[in-house]
């Protein structure tokens, strides 16, 4: 087998444009099978050493430390204090139930809006420092909001259930209203931001339903078993709106 001349290899390594195409072709074909000529070429290749180093750096597996914490992908990393606070509200309501002798239960009045306050953080411009980074990522959108909402509900609903046990508050009475408030806050949040929507809805609830109910010492009519179908209707309506406007959550909200 005849080998490539040293001069031609030098010109090839220096990127000489003057070599005829057929010679380049023959040279490259020969290089593929001839180790000694490849070695000759490598001796001329000082100029491309930095490039090779970069390629090798990209190919070499990076060292990854073995011990790592698992990232929570269900609850916003900023959401833990917020959830703690809403659990505290439930606990205070439970204490008030135990200490006062009223006909209405504080837990029952707080339960419909408490999970919503936790959800307010699922998509919050002010409380979530990474908001803009998150909103610009592929995963942003209704799915991520719902994922974080579920993360909150999974913690909040058992907590409220436990808080209601001493006062014998049936979860059946507040479960649908609390879900309705949660999705309602997300829908209203499309217009005014989820946090503001939660605050508005919680305020309305306290002023219109919880306040008068405490003053008159009776269970508000909207929490009677007879009103449950209406709460279910609200949930269905809100979910439909969310489905139609799903893409809004992948943009910057007000």
């Amino acid at each position: 087998m005849s080998h490539v001349s040293g001069d031609l290899v030098r010109r090839y390594a220096n990127g000489d444009k003057g070599i005829p195409a057929d010679q380049v072709w023959a040279l490259e074909a020969h290089m593929e099978t001839c180790a000694s000529c490849r070695q000759l070429l490598a001796s001329h290749a000082d100029g491309i050493a930095p490039l090779l180093d970069t390629v090798w750096a990209g190919l070499t597996p990076a060292e990854v430390p073995a011990k790592r914490r698992r990232l929570s992908t269900w609850i916003t990393p900023a959401g833990f204090p917020w959830i703690g606070m809403t659990i505290l509200i439930a606990a205070i309501a439970m204490l008030l139930d135990a200490l006062t002798v009223l006909d209405t239960s504080f837990v029952l009045l707080v339960a419909p809006v408490a999970p919503m306050l936790g959800v307010a953080l699922a998509w919050n411009k002010n409380a979530d420092p990474m908001y803009e980074l998150v909103a610009g990522s592929p995963r942003a959108g209704l799915e991520l909001v719902l994922r974080r909402t579920v993360g909150v509900l999974v913690v909040m609903i058992p907590a409220l259930f436990l808080a209601g046990l001493p006062g014998r508050v049936s979860p059946a009475l507040w479960l649908l209203p609390s879900l309705a408030f949660t999705v309602g806050a997300l829908v209203l949040g499309l217009l005014i931001g989820v946090t503001r929507a939660s605050v508005v809805l919680a305020g309305v609830w306290l002023l219109v339903v919880a306040g008068p109910s405490l003053a008159e010492q009776n269970v508000p009519a909207v929490l009677h078993p007879a009103s449950l179908p209406y709460w279910a209707l609200i949930i269905v309506g809100c979910v439909a709106v969310l489905g139609l406007r799903a893409d809004s959550f992948s943009r910057l909200l007000r």
Partner: peptide, 22 residues
Amino acid sequence: QFGFYSRFTVREFVEYMAWLKE
């Protein structure tokens, strides 16, 4: 301007973003 969760390390921050980038 961007913030970060204060308990994140650099690696966790970039990792969380990688998760968000699917």
